[in-house]
Design a protein around this nucleic acid. Structure first.
Lengths: 338, 338
DNA sequence: CTGAAAGCGCTAACAG
DNA sequence: CTGTTAGCGCTTTCAG
């Protein structure tokens, strides 16, 4: 029944080099005393036989797998590939392998993947989720780091300051002279969508003459956003600035405006959030609050490594500042009137 | 040294149910005779103890891991997430887990990942590559399926008919009345880029009055394409149609045209290739030869499953037809003059 | 129908 | 410095 592949094992090496398997293991892992001469001999044999240790056997003994899981809602959402890439790049360097888990924000799937990970001695996980609860994670008792969205106050979290970013985006629209600013927000159940909404709301409240805020639901979806924005602009043609809760919805806003013949940025300024590659590819290019996505993800991976090697997390919240990418979609001069 | 996690093992179940581990194994795997009553008792115990078998131990014995690797050049390239998602979705249903490998088309990295896979008893791989050579794969002796690009005539391949797709794209530009059609091609070393070029070339040759083809290098990169197209249009303003070798380069073409104030589609029609989500998000929306990406990838995954379960591949080449998405960037009526 | 026992390939005491 | 040995948790003969 077993496969007929015949790879060389530690025993083959031991026999060939006339030593015990323990010695081979010692030179492989640079661990324990080995006579320099035997060490050389063993090394030579390993090279000659092209021996590669079997990770599965090692995992079984060590109860670890040099594997981590990365859980994202959907790799097809353009924000996540960069995140995943950052994690994968960093970890392969450390000899770790990355298992991809698409959850669709479905708690069932999250649980399924957690089970799978546990059964495989996965060493830890990097998780993007707003459905996962702390007690579930406790059940699995595995090093975990949260990315993009927080999970619980004592799991290390790497995310951007959504509220401040949103404030800056809104302020930017004001700075370039917008008088009537609307917000296209993401889903209610996604915490960062709400934080961005709050940032918008705060600036609108505290700025003279901007008490009238105006929010539509874009659901983090381009088409939904296009539809909502079109309707909004029909009802309130005086709107001259839109802050979209992410870049995808900003593209939708662009389309909504275009369908009504409204010129961006002349008649309507639009700014997004995230800074995905896509945002600089459109016409006009999209202004956006850019997240240091790659950096966040490699640092999250680094933190996970520390956790796995037994260190306790130094601080649990790592908050990054998004930066304004001022591009064509908000490219106008501040009007001096007030 | 071992972790202190204390999960329940098959022994715990056996003890609790007053049977041997062999019996527990039998009921778990529905394999061999077990008295219905004992079976029930064991099942109950498994459920009560929330026992989940340890995949690593099983792998060690069976020399298989219920894991496959997916190798792509770069998950950040918008074409690949959909591919990866299709594979992952299909495989998780089958109880398989997916390891992500970003190779950057670097043979070193490809080899590294292949090593990693072998050491982990990975059961097979789905590979997008044009650098991987057959003899290297043979070395690893592992079920493999090629996606998007072929590797060797006897590894099952799932890809689109690039040449025919390119012919149709070019023909489409002719059909809508373009008189002077250029092509932005992908890298020389990527076979599908060359196939698309050939499709373009063929149509240009066989159509009356179109002997003068005109090709620039876009390198599958948006910025590079924008630059090349801009220069091209400055030198040859009579060009009124562009077939770009993929959607990303088509977006670049759009930008190149825009920077010169050239109107799309009125003065210049542009068509891309791939049909990534992005292509319908732009303004104007991009006409493109759309690939059945998700379908191809699930079927590739299915083929890999067959290979793994020991069946020999029925046919090695699975060629899909791309379909024309006629959208705004080529939206004009055929002119009747000639 | 069921149990005992021999591994899968590797690591880490524990004795030399 | 090196070898022997006992597992890691599971599957599968091989005898009852």
């Amino acid at each position: 029944m077993n496969k007929v592949i015949n790879v060389t094992t530690i025993r083959d090496v031991a026999k060939d080099a006339n030593v015990s398997v323990a010695t081979v293991s010692r030179v492989m892992n640079d661990n324990g005393y080995v006579n320099p001469e035997t060490r050389e001999k063993v090394k030579e044999t390993i090279a000659r036989l092209n021996y590669q240790p079997n990770s599965v056997a090692r995992s079984l003994y060590k109860k670890e797998s040099k594997t981590i899981g990365i859980m994202v809602p959907d790799i097809m959402n353009p924000y996540f590939p960069e995140l995943v890439r950052g994690v994968e790049d960093y970890l392969i360097e450390k000899g770790f392998t990355t298992i991809l888990c698409n959850t669709d924000e479905d708690p069932e799937k999250e649980r399924l993947y957690l089970d799978v990970m546990k059964q495989r001695y996965v060493d830890g996980a990097i998780i993007v989720s707003n459905t996962l609860k702390r007690d579930l994670i406790d059940e699995y008792d595995m090093p975990i780091v949260a990315l993009d969205r927080s999970i619980h106050e004592n799991v290390p979290t790497f995310m951007v300051d959504n509220t401040v970013g949103a404030e800056q985006a809104t302020q930017h629209l004001i700075d370039i002279g917008c008088k009537r600013i609307a917000h296209v927000r993401g889903p209610e159940h996604v915490e960062n969508a709400t934080a961005r909404y709050e940032g918008y709301y705060k600036i609108m409240q505290q700025t003279n003459g901007f008490q009238e805020h105006c929010v539509v639901q874009g659901d983090f979806d381009q088409k939904q956003s296009a539809k909502a924005v079109k309707q909004l602009l029909q009802e309130q043609p005086e709107i001259d600035g839109i802050f979209a809760g992410n870049d995808i919805m900003a593209l939708g806003a662009l389309k909504g405006a275009e369908s009504l013949g409204i010129k961006v940025p002349q008649e309507l300024a639009i700014i997004g959030f995230d800074g995905i590659d896509l945002s600089s590819m459109t016409i006009p290019e999209l202004s956006t609050m850019s997240q240091p996505i790659y950096e966040m993800s490699t640092q999250a991976a680094d933190a996970l490594m520390s956790l796995i090697s037994g260190q306790t997390a130094d601080e649990t919240e790592h908050i990054y500042q998004p930066t304004l990418e001022w591009r064509q979609s908000t490219d106008r001069i501040r009007k001096e009137d007030n």
